[in-house]
Design a protein around this nucleic acid. Sequence first.
DNA 1: TTTTGAGTTGTTCGA
DNA 2: GTCGAACAACTCAAA
Length: 473
Amino acid sequence: MSDTPILVWFRRDLRLADNPALHAAAETGRPIIPVFIWAPKEEDPWAPGAASRWWLHHSLTAFVQSLEKKGSRLVVLEEGSEAGLRRLMKETGATAIYWNRLYEPAIVARDKEIKSALKQENIEAISFNHSLLFEPHQVANKSGKPFQVFTPFWRHCLSLDEPASPLATPRKWASPKEWPDSVPLDDLKLLPRINWDAGFYDTWTPGEKGAHTAVEQFLDEAVIDYKAKRDFPATVGTSRLSPHLHFGEIGPRQLWYIVQEAIAGSDRKGMVQGGEFYLREVGWREFAHHLLYHFPHTAEAPLRPEFGDFPWRENAEELLAWQRGLTGYPIVDAGMRELWHTGWLHNRVRMIVASFLVKDLLISWQEGAAWFWDTLVDADLANNALGWQWAGGCGADAAPYFRIFNPTLQGEKFDGDGEYVRHWVPELSGVDASIIHKPWTADKSVGDGYPQPMVDHKKARDRALAALAEIKK
DNA sequence: TTTTGAGTTGTTCGA
DNA sequence: GTCGAACAACTCAAA
């Protein structure tokens, strides 16, 4: 029994360093069979979108290579998770399964079921925390309830014990004498059939190594001025780590210690402030997971129930104009085109395009969330739900009622010289900075082929306020 | 139980 | 151009 193999079930923890399930399995000295199961139906209705699948394909490819360097392999299955695990145990004589926990409602339910079924049969099924600094069930306010406001949530987290130090990559581990069959990665058909992902390759390097390169770059360049620079989409002022974090190519505990170390090792004031602000953003990721775990309906439905009656408009044509980046508001269109081209969008611009869809067009945040889900390489259910509900005013935001972004003003504030717009909206590349965020005010027509604004913001704002007043009653 | 203080990211108006 | 107040009285978390 003690030398039977252990299955290490990899999901979105595609890394060797600080991987608790792998680490624990390696400690036993028993043979390890790494397994990945592609069973998107089990995550329904939130099976990975197209951009996510692109990332997953390349992340798995990189992960297979790192495993092979250790003399190991990745056994890929395409079937139901429980059935696949059982079949593999039978085939290999494995008597234990280790994995790292996830927190999406459908996955929690599935994993719980598998765990209790296996445990009843005396199979060792052990799960670990790899993806959060503070797990949802550890954090509660003084009345024992989950938090719904970020600041007290994060203050509370920081008062708890510091997250454990990251685990080292196991130097080596035993492998089974014979490897079971594995589905070739290409057979999963994760890559898009039409070639819309060309721009992704210039932008991203999925995989554990790519994640660490991104961290180093962030520490070298951006973290110093993070607080000041992170709002300007034309500069590389953010970490761009979100997809790496989502797929677990790096974990937040690693980030926590890397950033703390950088702060301690630097005498530059901006580093302390930048580092702390950055970790606060990591805290938002924690908060998003906290909320989705404790309020599992919030991927689909508003956290604030009164928003169930909100008079959203349905308008396929306007939704399409937004998706295509043809709204006539340059900063919105630049953002939507960056998203389409790179599978990612700067955080400031996410807020701007979201506010435009929800407040200016009065199209529901769920429509926006669905589009982001399909097009973002970092699409993450918890973060997506929190972000869109925040934009919609129906989520965890203490004072949302009068916050309606003005797309012209936002453009002028955060892309003052128009560099970002010029890059993503070539029709406007020759337009002067003074009017690039309001090209419709030009004396003579500018921007060949660029559309007129699809709504008048002032009127749209009044319409949104009226709609908000309606559900207040 | 009641009270009190505070809340990611904003905009507009009028001085 | 800059600044503070109003937006509208809300909800959460802690004392």
